[in-house]
Design a protein around this nucleic acid. Structure first.
Lengths: 190, 190
DNA sequence: TCCGTACAATTTGATCCCGAACGATATCGT
DNA sequence: ACGATATCGTTCGGGATCAAATTGTACGGA
């Protein structure tokens, strides 16, 4: 049984582990719970409304972005959906194969590809989104509207902090050192 | 530039899209921002402190759990780390190959496998965790301690809601229908 | 003792995901 | 004009991920 108890317990144990080193408990708890909540929410939504429509979380998010913003360039969709360009290529191809999304070239800039929903995709979202939103209401059921606003606002500030200062911060941490390659993924040619 | 503005913007657009259908805006904002924050935080930490130690997020979480709780049965570690048992098998094997984790059989129950940190793993955590925690403090830098507590508490309630009521809810939603198989993964034999 | 049930972890199959490398197009400077 | 440079989407390499199937171990009762 994770959640409140085990996390508080874990924090205490972590404090003991670290001895003299100071631990930022509150900040640690925020990060831990953000991640826990994200997994829980995603799992619940995938296993309830999304599975019935054969959609993964990522596929739904992509559809949602295109639905809301209308025809968009892929890089904007990827950015807004929080996935890499490479991932979007695959996802949008799958969605295209299922007849939910259309991919068309930009009229003047030959490098760009535009995504838009087909009628079928539009209908799907009309049908699925209300149910999705209902589950969003379910998972936040223990929070009042006011508490929702407050939590959302706090999370927004976390996102903004990373987006606005993250890059700089990472560079400062490296302090001139080489950026350390990812363990997986395509190897540099050299 | 996502974040506060674009999400608020998106909500307005979504409202327009849905016309008469009522949307739970506050609840939608919470879910959207939970996921956004989780991605942002994970990405920042992977690209700063974890990459330097050749650790993925999941690998770090697993190490952390074993570090804090001490030698533990794998099923508990998987549960606490928020990953499936199958995933843990792979991750722990990778960590074992790197000499960070030890896998030993349970003294009396031959079915169980216990995970513990090697000296090298212990040293790694001593070295990495303080930096990890510092970045946790960085990403939450726009929140006061009090706000951190409040956000963490709100998220905890979301997690609890899903953990305690999610199963029941999903069953109620299906309402007797067959559970709709996952799109990916090994196919049922029958 | 031996069988069936219960419960562990592992293997397997299909898919998802990131980020480096790549090829194609656009744009700027000279 | 035209090569250097920047930027786009796509391809590709190597995990990571889940759930079902499988394999192995424990333990109850006949």
């Amino acid at each position: 049984m994770p959640g409140q108890r085990s996390i508080t317990e874990a924090e205490k144990l972590a404090g003991a582990k670290l001895g003299g080193i100071p631990v930022r408990h509150e900040q640690m708890a925020v990060v831990a719970n953000i991640y826990r909540a994200a997994s829980a929410v995603r799992q619940h939504l995938e296993n309830s409304v999304l599975r019935g429509s054969e959609l993964t979380w990522t596929a739904f998010v992509v559809l949602w972005v295109v639905w809301i913003w209308g025809e968009s360039e892929t890089r904007h969709v990827a950015e807004e959906a929080g996935i890499s360009k490479g991932t979007l290529t695959g996802v949008s191809r799958t969605l295209e194969a299922r007849g939910l999304v259309r991919r068309s070239g930009h009229p003047t800039d030959g490098r760009l590809v535009l995504l838009s929903l087909t009628d079928e995709g539009e209908e799907l979202m009309q049908r699925v989104f209300p149910r999705f939103n209902e589950e969003e209401a379910f998972v936040t059921g223990q929070l009042s509207d006011e508490e929702c606003r407050s939590v959302a606002e706090g999370l927004r500030r976390v996102v903004l902090q990373v987006e606005e200062q993250g890059e700089e911060r990472r560079l400062a941490l490296l302090d001139g050192a080489e950026p350390a390659p990812r363990r997986s993924g395509r190897r540099p040619k050299a």
